[in-house]
Design a protein around this nucleic acid. Structure first.
Lengths: 340, 340
DNA sequence: GTGAAAGCGCTAACAA
DNA sequence: TTGTTAGCGCTTTCAC
């Protein structure tokens, strides 16, 4: 079964292939009659437009490359939900690449996307990423790039993210208002801005409420269940007095809760715990995890909408570079709310 | 900054563009010297191969379309992990489309993929899918198609899945062996084979162990947390006697456990619960959820490997159509194991 | 309202 | 070992 092209349709109707092409593209100068005829014949012959050919000619692929660290985080899968929705509605398709938190793979993904002539790239950087050349180069090459969540500040690249500083502040303030006083801050040793901002927010909340900033109650590591557990273990072994835990993301909070339970400490009665990111599992565990929601689907939709809007403008990188900052939302659940 | 093509490299070196093309493709007939020169110049000028042009010419895009119902299920994101790994190692890229359990979107995805001239499609069908024309048509058009997990039987389409019958049997047998006697089977009203097989397995396990098959203890609905809850509610309201719950997937099990807890029933002491699919959250909840693991990453890798192997053969659909059936693995956790 | 013709950047058969 | 040439299927400009 040979593939049908516009030439086959043209032959069938005794017209030229350029008329067919125009008819299929709904060109205004083609008569309604011809259009109908062409469409009917296309349908009958089982024609499928070859987008590769049209992309080569037009220089547009209508494909957008998406780089995410990993799909296993429900945060990213929900953002993708939002992105895909808007992107598809605008006639684009998503090409997916997972960096798996590796800068090497991140670079590889960009390279692949460029070869495939994507119309642009949407990305959230890997935890490992500290050099940004592969992203700033895109700007130089005038390849549309938009970052979300894990963004790069001051790089003249448009982005959509939440106010992580505020998120960190809110989380910590929430624990304070619930009456927790000796608050442990678990942070990370990754340089990416979101975690730095959350930490700043937490520290400022302590200051704001006149609580001491104790360096021995601040932990830096690789955000994960294991790290959450290990922090609690250390606190316990050192006999530290503490009653609140602020974490950089939900998995760390999960590990912390599990470790606390294993030491016979009750959450939230003895220790209050708050996560960050509103991963789906937080609603299922016992106690249900208080966390900060990042409006995932909205973030995805806004990122995609902004991207689509910018890509239509003559210069994607025209100043001023738009940045959308979404408000974080506190989701109070059991892990931090003492029944009085 | 104009895009660099092989012509620019050729001009720079005073050779023809076809020599450049050959050098870049490591053609054996080109001297090592020329190759080095070409590569160096390409690098220096910042050349990026235009895969769209090469695809148009060669008829191969090295892109594989992937259709999954939804990324939010950790099952699918892990399978993708496996698929992406193998696919990338073989020089392919993944184009992603989520059907969101809608047959309409599923058809749309296939259409998009065909227009983009993907080299093949890997898919797991939506819950809604009962007519398979859009898939069997692919076979007619000789477009490589491989299904995984949610497959179509007897359609002469290669697939990779687990032995769902065995999984259903194992799950039910496990409860029986743990001493549960009045076993509720929650199944679905979806026609897709995996759920039908799991149900058959469950029923056969009851038969095998001489337990009665009670139609009033079998539920059919849309697998979800809500459905799990509603089943328990009905059982409770009808005053049914039961002590074991077999579910079609983990979210239904989660809902069941939450409902049981709300009625003051203890899991696993009063009622044993087993899920299916080994979703990530099962390990985090209280009690930890016993489930059936589908070897997600391995399934992805095997699916991708088989696909890559078949696509290299002269006829993707050569008989006999290969089918890989992976063994399910029982993951006993707290929700079904009575401490004696 | 439709036709003619050029060309996007590359691959590959055929020459030399 | 390298050059010449013809397209892949479409978009698009210029004619008429």
């Amino acid at each position: 079964m040979k593939k049908i092209t516009i030439l086959d349709i043209a032959r069938e109707l005794n017209i030229t292939f350029s008329t067919v092409a125009r008819a299929l593209n709904d060109h205004p100068a083609i008569s309604t009659n011809t259009k109908a005829l062409v469409r009917e014949t296309a349908e009958r012959l089982g024609y499928t437009r070859n987008k590769i050919a049209s992309s080569l000619r037009s220089g547009k692929t209508k494909v957008i490359g998406l780089i995410v660290p990993r799909l296993e985080l429900s945060f990213f899968s929900s953002v993708i939900h939002g992105i895909e929705h808007v992107i598809n509605a605008n006639g684009y398709t998503l090409l997916l690449y997972q960096s798996r938190e590796s800068i090497k793979r991140e670079i590889k993904g960009i390279e692949t996307f460029l070869q495939l002539q994507v119309d642009g790239i949407i990305a959230s950087i890997s935890l490992e990423t500290t050099s940004y050349k592969h992203f700033t180069d895109l700007r130089k090459q005038k390849v549309p790039l938009l970052l979300f969540d894990r963004i790069i500040e001051n790089a003249d690249i448009p982005y959509v993210s939440i106010n992580d500083y505020k998120g960190g502040f809110m989380a910590t303030e929430h624990l304070i208002k619930q009456g927790y006083k000796d608050i442990v801050i678990i942070s990370t040793n990754h340089k990416i801005s979101i975690f730095q901002e959350r930490l700043k927010g937490s520290i400022d909340a302590l200051k704001f409420y006149n609580l001491p900033i104790r360096e021995d109650l601040i932990f830096y590591g690789n955000p994960s269940r294991e790290f959450g557990e290990s922090c609690i273990r250390q606190l316990y072994q050192n006999g530290e007095k503490f009653d609140g835990i602020v974490t950089p993301e939900d998995y760390t909070a999960l590990g912390a809760i599990q470790a606390l339970k294993s030491y016979g400490l009750k959450v939230p009665e003895d220790v209050g715990v708050i996560g960050f990111a509103n991963e789906a599992f937080g609603d299922y565990i016992t106690p249900r995890l208080t966390t900060i929601d990042q409006q995932n689907i909205a973030m995805g939709e806004q990122a995609a909408s902004l991207f689509v809007k910018l890509i239509k403008s003559p210069d994607f990188y025209a100043q001023p570079i738009p940045k959308i900052i979404i408000d974080p939302i506190l989701i109070p659940r059991e892990s931090s709310v003492r029944k009085s």
